[in-house]
């Protein structure tokens, strides 16, 4: 029984057909890495999974909550799907703790003291229990991204989407964020991530999806897919990434 099921998904940006019939099954506890060149549709695919991009045609089901051809209860879907962005997108007018508390109190109606406990627990999980009262601009990029992860986790999502979450970070800050993601994976969190960290994808992921021209071009176990690409496009891509 899959946790995320995508069937026949199509998406256009005007005349541009960016997703040309995607079928994808993600099981509970899967760690899926989406790779591909820019413009291949990988970020768009990720963003359709919580309705940030609308779906023109096809079906998306997350833990029983469905969108048919883009119609359905978006907010119910989003309560099950957390997301972390490349640019962190923390709320700058709120402290780290308030950032994490906001959605549980406002959306779920969790009482403040209880939400505060949840926020403390989540910040502890990402190693930032001492930053509860810090504002985002007082934190490093890596710390901001970890707060963003804590903020998403506070809603207890079934699946967490990560959109190039280390791409905006200075090189020395990448590892602290990846360590948090690795820990989540070991704890059994279902993760779908668009990433350029190929080594991380191979090491932590159990499913690799290579997108090309709006289609899933090749997929499988990261270790075998990387070692033995079946299509020239993937071989080319892997070669280009490893050369860089």
């Amino acid at each position: 029984m899959s946790l995320v099921k995508i069937a026949g998904l199509h998406k256009h940006f005007g005349a541009n057909h960016v997703l040309k019939g995607i079928d994808l099954d993600v099981a509970r506890g899967d760690v899926v890495a989406l790779i591909g060149r820019s413009g291949s549709g990988k970020s768009t695919l990720l963003r359709t999974i919580n309705g940030l991009e609308s779906i023109d045609k096809g079906e998306l089901v997350v833990d029983g909550t469905a969108l048919h051809d883009g119609r359905g209860d978006l907010r119910a879907l989003r309560q099950k799907v957390g997301m972390v962005f490349q640019q962190f997108n923390l709320f700058p007018h709120l402290t780290a703790g308030q950032n994490v508390m906001l959605a549980p109190t406002v959306v779920k109606g969790t009482p403040k003291p209880e939400a505060c406990d949840i926020a403390k627990e989540m910040l502890l999980k990402v190693g930032l229990s001492d930053k509860f009262d810090s504002y985002p601009d007082q934190l490093s990029g890596g710390q901001q991204q970890r707060v963003a992860i804590a903020r998403a986790l506070a809603m207890q999502p079934k699946v967490l989407l990560c959109d190039e979450i280390t791409s905006a970070l200075d090189p020395e800050l990448v590892s602290e964020v990846l360590a948090v993601v690795r820990q989540l994976a070991t704890e059994g969190m279902t993760l779908i991530m668009v990433t350029h960290e190929m080594r991380f994808a191979r090491e932590v992921g159990n499913k690799l999806i290579f997108m090309h021209h709006g289609r899933i071009h090749e997929s499988g176990d990261p270790k075998t897919v990387f070692a033995d690409p079946q299509t020239p496009e993937l071989a080319n891509f892997v070669g280009a990434v490893q050369a860089a």
Binding site: R78, Q79, N89, F91, V107, R151
Partner: peptide, 17 residues
């Protein structure tokens, strides 16, 4: 910034929220 709309939408906040 647009990211603020997206982040808050992702957290399931309604338009008013």
């Amino acid at each position: 910034p647009k990211g603020q709309w997206e982040a808050s939408a992702t957290l399931a906040l309604s338009y008013t929220q």
